[in-house]
């Protein structure tokens, strides 16, 4: 079953053409790793399909409906967002809310869910990401890895069809990356549909079922992760993988 389909998405910032007509299809349970050098438009792609940026062109098929990305109504945006989750590179937890409040806000405020019910759901999710013991801490009292795990629980709160991750471990100290990747791996194994922009090659190779390599606003190569990693078709992909795989010193 197709969860999401993006067709011909284009985006420019002023003179610079950032996304040059990308197509993307996501099936239920897919974990798609998006690779590419810095500045290739990965963040812009995720932001456009969750309407944090307005695309200039393109269509989105989601939940059995087709939307024109350049002409979304507020209502349509809200309807799609209610069924998607977003995890930011720098977590973006609400600074004035505790971990549990961060997770339940979307339920109690946006959906007017009963506070007690939302709390039960929220505590369950914090349990899942190993943060239940920290539920009453504020973001400033948590490490980066802990904040990102709370952010993942927050993205899960709305029971989304798909979660977008924008380099979820790039802002983390190396020793904290593992705990976040472990949570994401468990989500993937539980069947969650995810698009993950990442520089973690092990995650892309071993956890994602499809890998997509983009550069200069176009998809250079995509396919089953095993194939892309073991037999990359394009010279650019080979070069990129070689550089990323070499130890960073």
């Amino acid at each position: 079953m197709t969860v999401l389909e993006v067709k011909g998405i284009e985006k420019s910032f002023g003179e610079s053409h950032i996304l040059k007509g990308l197509d993307l299809t996501v099936e239920k349970g897919d974990v798609i790793a998006v690779l590419g050098p810095s500045g290739s438009g990965k963040t812009t792609l995720l932001r456009c399909i969750n309407f944090l940026e307005k695309a200039d062109k393109g269509t989105l098929v989601f939940g059995g409906r087709e939307y024109d990305l350049a002409n979304m109504t507020k209502k349509d945006i809200a309807a799609v967002r209610r069924r998607t989750g977003f995890v930011f590179q720098n977590y973006n937890l609400f600074a004035n809310k505790t971990a549990i409040e961060n997770v339940t806000m979307g339920l109690t405020v946006a959906r007017k869910m009963d506070k007690a019910k939302a709390r039960t759901i929220g505590m369950d999710l914090l349990e899942k990401v190993g943060m239940a013991d920290w539920h009453d801490r504020y973001p400033s009292q948590l490490s980066g890895g802990q904040q990102q795990r709370v952010a993942i629980a927050r993205a899960l709160a709305s029971d989304p069809e798909i979660i977008y991750f924008d380099e979820p471990t790039s802002a983390l100290d190396p020793e904290l990356i593992g705990e976040v990747l472990a949570v994401m791996r468990r989500l993937a194994e539980a069947g969650m549909t995810m698009i993950v922009v990442t520089h973690e090659m092990d995650f892309a190779r071993n956890v994602s079922n499809r890998t997509l390599f983009m550069e200069h606003g176009v998809i250079v190569e995509q396919g089953p992760s095993r194939e892309v990693f073991e037999h990359p078709k394009e010279e650019r992909t080979r070069e990129f993988l070689r550089l990323e795989d070499s130890p960073h010193v």
């Binding site: 809200a78 609400f94 600074a95 004035n96 806000m105 405020v109 927050r154 709160a157």
Partner: peptide, 24 residues
């Protein structure tokens, strides 16, 4: 990012303002 995270949680502008941005 606080505003954007609020949108991604399904909140509207006024809800984000009253609960997140204005208090901060």
């Amino acid at each position: 990012g606080q505003l954007e995270a609020g949108y991604c949680c399904g909140m509207n502008f006024l809800q984000i303002m009253t609960h997140i941005v204005l208090p901060q």
